[in-house]
Write a protein that binds this DNA or RNA. Sequence first.
DNA 1: CTGAAAGCGCTTACAG
DNA 2: CTGAAAGCGCTTACAG
Lengths: 336, 336
Amino acid sequence: MTIKDIARLSGYSVSTVSRVLNKHPDVNPKTREKVLAVIKEQGFAPNDNAKLLKMQAQSSVAVLVKGSQNPLFADILERSQSLFQQNGEASYVAYLDEDADEVQHAARLMELRHPKGFLFLGGDLEHFKDSFSQLSTPSVLLTNDARALGFPNLSSFTTDDASAAAQVIDSLTEHGHRSIGVIGGSLALHQVSYRRIRGVQQAMEQHGLCFDLDRCYEPCRYSMEEGYQATMRLLKRNGALSAIFALGDVIALGALRAICDRRLRVPEDISLVGYDGIAAAKYSIPRLSTVCQNTEALAARGVSALLQQIRLGAAPLHETIPFELRLSESIGTPRC
Amino acid sequence: MTIKDIARLSGYSVSTVSRVLNKHPDVNPKTREKVLAVIKEQGFAPNDNAKLLKMQAQSSVAVLVKGSQNPLFADILERSQSLFQQNGEASYVAYLDEDADEVQHAARLMELRHPKGFLFLGGDLEHFKDSFSQLSTPSVLLTNDARALGFPNLSSFTTDDASAAAQVIDSLTEHGHRSIGVIGGSLALHQVSYRRIRGVQQAMEQHGLCFDLDRCYEPCRYSMEEGYQATMRLLKRNGALSAIFALGDVIALGALRAICDRRLRVPEDISLVGYDGIAAAKYSIPRLSTVCQNTEALAARGVSALLQQIRLGAAPLHETIPFELRLSESIGTPRC
DNA sequence: CTGAAAGCGCTTACAG
DNA sequence: CTGAAAGCGCTTACAG
């Protein structure tokens, strides 16, 4: 059953059927009606492949998610999808490994599917610097700041990571903490985690405290398991810590368990702060203090900017989305 | 950049380039090499739409996920996607609300995209009974049993929910529990939760214990928030419970926090068991006892059956996938 | 408002 | 082993 059959059955030409199918206004209402009747009767639906081929396949918006297990991205993704849908845009989701090169993947998708836009949930600026120039598709990066790269087709929306991290440190020092450890992410220059760590360093300096990366920082990926392991390594290495700042809530949740397994208590022995503001942070015991990223605003601004770029050729935008430091049960005052 | 350009640039015909692209054996090795060189040099990748159009192939497999926030499905989804990829099948993911009608949604997708198969992650048998007959596409339902419906194009793979629930009760009674509450899901006949509740009822009876739905059961959706609320309601209503069985790990995690907020302790005051075996269950304090669903097997069997149905027209399969009851810190003996 | 025709980028008999 | 050509099912100027 093809458009040709419908044309034959309805007595009209293929062109007219196509116009009806695509809701073009310039079709006689009676004609439309008759054609529609045949379409319905036959249960016909057009072949997408042919359509996309013909239309040069600007099929949909591609969303690239780094790290499928991260509830933060699941949150942003859910909101983005419903926003795309509301705006009549189909979207295609690809989950990548946390360490994968999202820009390379986008380039491959470009060849394969010709999406009309890319929404990156998470991304390593290093990858963008290296190879984003080969993409001319409108794109938006969420949770990392691409302003400095200056690409004409790349917007970015991000939480002010350095400032959020600094506020965490401020709050911990206010509670009397002077020996603070950090876990999560890596020191690679263009990662979000690096910006957070820089924020930590600056705040520590400002408070006249030392923050020795070798003794106080432990890298890890964004999962409970890795958060658990990293915390174990950090605690073994440095017994003097009175607080730990985990650069992701899932990491913090792993840390919570690790601290417990070391026969220490949160917050009596060690205070703990996370980052992201995922739902689970409200239900842990104790409840997690954390930097709440505004996923709703990130999704809304990101989708809107992408659509403007696609539809109106708008210039890229780079914005900082306000965060909220949520203080909760996992922060206490140090022992002595 | 099309196959035509590669033909021109390499000095061969379009046919030959196509053969190289598709790894046909009947190409002179030297020719192949030269063509491949040009392809690599140009970074060429063939247009999928044209290929699919020509090959009459339907575009992809559609995966319908009920409840985007459920880590159980995220787990199965991740595995399924990589299996589809390994088998050269593109897949398209749609997230639905927990209460949405997945079969109606599939019917809509059918019109829109002509997927060659559907993989349902979660599903309400009521919806299948009502309207699956309008779908003739090969389909697989995961985590619910559709054998009784007898559709010729619908396989199903599921954990033996009744038996798993019964084992949970057996284990709790062995620990001395006689007053056990259940939270999660609903009593609707064709829901997974109903099968689990039936298992609970039968096991309780067998142990000569009473299980009064009115006093001992509280329905809720699969989220921490709802698990928290449901637990609060249940504990207010029934102060005599010494154990709670949550029909989902996310629900159990909410319950854990609720019990804590009631100034009770797990497992000293109340024992707690979950269902699913998600990663977070290993990191809660205390660690959660739970029914581990074998997500790897569910994904593997489901994808394999779907592919067999699509490619070989195989008959539908209905299988029970073994589960594992993982006993952990959240079970204790009742107070007195 | 409608139709005839070109062409999107590919694959695959068919012929050599 | 290679090439010329037909055709997959659609959309869209172009002409009327």
